[in-house]
Deep mutational scan, measured.
Amino acid sequence: MQGVVKVNSALNMRSGPGSNYGVIGTLRNNDKVEIIKEVDGWYEIRFNGKVGYASKSYITIVN
């Protein structure tokens, strides 16, 4: 499943599904990501070869 990031500035990509996990990357508005699965309001995603987590509130699913 594919998604597009929708933010005003930047979205942190984290090592786990929560804001208490470390930041491993930064996503920008309109970045395209691969959604692997949903975990407690977060998406596990793949972006630029990295796998991490981002809040699903800021990612819109596209077909």
Score class of each variant (00 low, 15 high):
V51L: 11
L11S: 06
E34T: 05
V4K: 07
N12F: 12
E34S: 05
N20Y: 12
I59Y: 01
I59M: 04
I59C: 03
E44S: 06
R14D: 01
Y21L: 02
R28H: 13
E38A: 07
N20T: 08
P17Y: 01
W42R: 01
K37H: 12
G49I: 05
I36D: 04
T60Q: 13
N20R: 10
K6C: 06
N63Y: 03
D31M: 06
T60F: 14
N63E: 14
V62T: 12
G25Q: 11
N20L: 08
G52V: 03
N48T: 09
L11A: 14
V62C: 05
V51D: 09
G25R: 06
N63R: 04
G25E: 11
G41Y: 05
G18P: 00
Y53S: 00
I35R: 00
T26S: 10
V51N: 15
G22E: 15
I35M: 04
R28W: 15
N20M: 12
W42G: 00
L27A: 04
Q2C: 04
R28K: 15
N30D: 15
N29A: 08
T60G: 10
I59G: 01
G18T: 02
K32F: 11
Y21H: 10
Y21M: 04
V5L: 03
V4E: 09
G41N: 08
I35Q: 01
I45P: 00
S15L: 11
L27I: 07
W42I: 01
I36G: 04
K56M: 11
P17E: 01
G49M: 09
S55K: 12
V23E: 06
I24Q: 04
S19M: 13
S19P: 14
Y53G: 00
N48Q: 14
S9A: 14
G52K: 00
G22M: 11
S9E: 13
T60H: 13
R14K: 07
I24S: 06
G49H: 15
N29Q: 09
V33H: 01
D31L: 04
N30F: 09
G22C: 06
V5A: 04
T60W: 12
S19K: 10
G18W: 01
G18S: 06
K56L: 07
P17G: 02
G52F: 03
G52H: 02
I45W: 00
N30I: 03
N29E: 11
K37L: 12
N12K: 11
S57N: 15
F47S: 08
Q2E: 15
N8H: 14
V33T: 03
G22W: 07
D40C: 05
V4D: 03
S57F: 09
I45G: 00
M1E: 12
R28P: 03
S57T: 12
S57Q: 12
I35W: 02
R46C: 05
S19W: 10
G41S: 10
V7T: 12
K6E: 10
V62Y: 09
G49C: 07
K50R: 10
